[in-house]
Design a binder for these strands. Structure first.
Length: 645
RNA sequence: GCCGGAGUAGCUCAGUGGCAGAGCAACCGCCUCGUAAGUGGUAGGUCAUGGGUUCGAAUCCCAUCUCCGGCUCCA
């Protein structure tokens, strides 16, 4: 007779499990699953012998994943009830929720989601147990007859490396006669689910391959409690309020009229002043850091792009050529070839190096139509693009200096704690030989090690001409944005036959570092708008001070005060509309004007004013010259918070 | 590019085969006001574009353009 299994609980105590009893029998009733000897299992799992057992408590990350996965099953079951001929593919838990992919006899849209959700609720009310069975592959295929995707998965299991199951047996989960191939584990029964909602539908290729059939994906969100779900939904609402496309319109910053073409944007006066401030600052900072400013055109002959390799490797992202009297011209998708030409305009010596060539270069990329997204994914944009051309000995120090500048720039906006990623060369489509790629990767790795930054490696994610280091920063809502990219390039110097004379009087090949710290200004602006929710720090605010006359007769007083403030470099708006003070305050608040000063008899008599900031807080009795000097100082220091007076 | 949805006044939207609508914004008055919407009026439209069905189309059909949500976070 087999010995009774002895279970070790997380607190170190031991319990004996009566033979044939599942682990759930000894765990708290709120447990959703169990971790048995480190592996996630159903509560119904019966251990073969002694084991350590840990409950998967509600609210834990494991529990959330299981909950979401189980909810995905309920979704699939509901869809199959509503559309009996449906094939179901995969339905994993994801960030904040889950999805399931289907091939449906009848197409559905978002309007069909309430009906599906209602069906899901009845399944939850039924409190159907999730029953696990382990069967042979043949049996599994038989049980899932008419499910081509499941068949494909079953046949592929164990064949590719890293596949989940091994051996000939796979697991099925069944509730109420509906069967899915699934590794598990699941919650004990559907009654444990509930805090979920379906969010959207989408097309998704089977296994993500464009050559595969397009399936219908249904997305949902699921949480441990209704409160968590509601908190998530209000986070989405907050993100929507901060959407740069919406704020760009509301704050009158930019637009993309149809006549321009997709992915192209015009900046309005209020957006223009914001960009000017950003650009002036970033240019000056570069000059301070030893960069030289250059200017290059938007188009160039095809020969330039042949030499650079763009026509060979980057053509699909380039606008088609323009025919002209002197040959074919291409609009530039990158600035680097032009910077090479600046370098090559003279014979260079090691004394010229490092050369740090910088421009706000406007580029055009013919991005795939479906990938465009506001200012975040555009076809025309301006990069803070620089190329550092240096000797191999100087590479590491130059890269370190770029890292340093990167951190300084992002700190100015309140972005800290970057997530740093080293992307190695994409082997297949590179113009670089393995040896060169190795050298470039090594240089970046050495610089990263020396910088002390934590980083992770992404194999094969680099640019076609070289490996790169990317910096991602977290915004006010906790979202990560890839902003900075630093690329180490041994290929273009070769292709363009770039040279310098060394102190040995021999010719040498320089190294080129590509780097954009803000990325494109359009994209960066979008990130800033969402980060600040449109409430820019004073130095970037299109309007810095708004004066509100109490009555018409105070307009001249406001104009006079505005003149004083403007003389100190402040951007001031006087609200001359014939509205009530309350209405004018509201208008100022809606355009997120940082400071509002109401000007009436009381203030003019006293010679002091009440300053209202964005939070609505009022600072009383402030002389106007102090308002001006305080705001000027706030702008000068690029302060992130508002002044207290 | 592909799947699904959408396109009506500057903005947000109603209108589902029978005269093109509302709120906000704009403009013109009245009010001269004290920290988030005072009040009356006026103007504003090729209902994305082109074709079709119909006595009749914003509405139904087709095509095109544009926008929105997505297109492995792998049972």
């Amino acid at each position: 007779m087999a010995p009774v299994p002895r279970l070790t609980l997380p607190d170190g105590t031991h319990v004996e499990l009566p033979e044939g009893e599942p682990v759930g029998a000894v765990l708290a009733p709120d447990a959703l699953a169990a971790r048995v000897d480190g592996t996630l299992r159903d509560l119904s799992f019966v251990p073969a012998g002694d084991a350590s057992v840990e409950p998967v408590a509600p609210g834990s990350d494991d529990a959330l994943r299981i909950l979401r996965h189980s909810t995905a099953h309920v979704l699939a079951q509901a869809v199959c009830r509503l559309q009996p001929g449906a094939s179901y593919a995969i339905g994993p838990p994801i960030q904040d929720g889950f999805y399931y992919d289907f091939d449906l006899p009848v197409a559905i849209g978002e309007g069909d989601l309430p009906a599906i959700e209602a069906e899901m609720r009845t399944i939850v009310e039924d409190d159907q147990p999730f029953l696990r069975e382990e069967v042979s592959r043949e049996d599994a295929i038989a049980r899932l007859e008419g499910q081509p995707f499941k068949r494909e998965i079953i046949e592929s299991i164990g064949s590719a490396e890293g596949e989940v199951a091994t051996g000939d047996r796979v697991s099925l989960y069944r509730n109420d006669g509906w069967v899915d191939l699934c590794e598990g584990p699941h919650v004990p029964s559907t009654g444990r689910l509930g805090a979920f909602t379906l969010t959207s539908t989408a097309g998704a290729y089977w296994r993500g391959l464009e050559t595969n059939p397009m399936l219908t994906r249904i997305y949902g969100s699921a949480w441990a409690t209704q409160e968590d779900l509601e908190a998530h939904l209000s986070r989405l609402e907050e993100a929507e309020k901060r959407d740069h496309r919406r704020l760009g319109r509301e704050l009158d910053l930019f637009s993309s009229p149809d006549e321009l073409g997709p992915g192209l944007w015009i900046w309005h006066p209020r957006g223009g002043i914001f960009r000017k401030e950003l650009e002036d600052w970033v240019r000056n900072l570069h000059v301070e850091r030893g960069y030289d400013l250059i200017v290059t055109p938007h188009i160039a002959r095809s020969v330039l792009w042949e030499t650079s390799g763009h026509l060979e490797k980057y053509r699909e992202n380039m606008y088609p050529p323009m025919e002209a009297d002197t040959g074919d011209y291409y609009v530039k998708p990158m600035n680097c070839p032009f910077h090479v030409l600046v370098y090559k305009s003279q014979v260079r010596s090691y004394r010229d190096l490092p050369m740090r060539l910088s421009e706000l270069g406007t580029i055009y990329r013919h991005e795939k139509a479906g990938t465009l997204h506001g200012l975040l994914r555009i076809r025309g944009g301006t990069q803070d693009d620089s190329h550092i051309i240096c000797t191999p000995d100087q590479v590491i120090d130059e890269i370190l200096a770029v890292f340093d500048l990167t951190l300084e720039i992002h700190r100015t906006f309140g972005f800290t704690d970057p997530v740093v990623e080293l992307s190695t060369l994409p082997v297949a489509q590179s113009i670089v030989d393995a040896d060169t790629a190795e050298r470039a990767t090594e240089a970046l790795t050495l610089a990263l090690e020396k910088s002390g930054l934590d980083y992770r490696v992404a194999e094969g994610e680099g640019a076609f001409y070289g490996p790169k280091v990317d910096f991602h920063f977290r915004d006010a809502l906790g979202r990560l944005w890839q902003l900075t990219t630093v690329q180490c390039d041994f290929a273009l110097p070769e292709r363009f036959d770039m040279e310098y004379t060394g102190d040995d009087n021999q010719r040498h090949r320089p190294v080129m570092i590509h780097r954009a710290i803000l990325g494109t200004l359009e994209r960066f602006s979008a990130v800033l708008i969402e980060h600040y929710g449109g409430a820019f720090p004073l130095w970037l605010a299109p309007e810095q001070l708004r004066l509100v006359p109490v009555a018409d007769r105070h307009v001249p007083n406001c104009e006079e005060l505005a003149g004083t403030a403007r003389a100190s470099g402040l951007r001031v708006h006087v609200d001359e509309t014939k509205e009530t003070v309350g209405k004018k305050i509201r208008a100022a608040q809606l355009v997120k004007s940082p400071y509002v000063v109401v000007v009436g008899d009381r203030d003019l008599d006293a010679g002091t004013f009440t300053v209202r900031d964005r939070s609505g807080e009022e600072h009383q009795g402030v002389p106007f010259d102090r308002i001006v000097s305080t705001l000027a100082e706030e702008a000068r220091t690029r302060a992130l918070g508002q002044s207290a007076f």
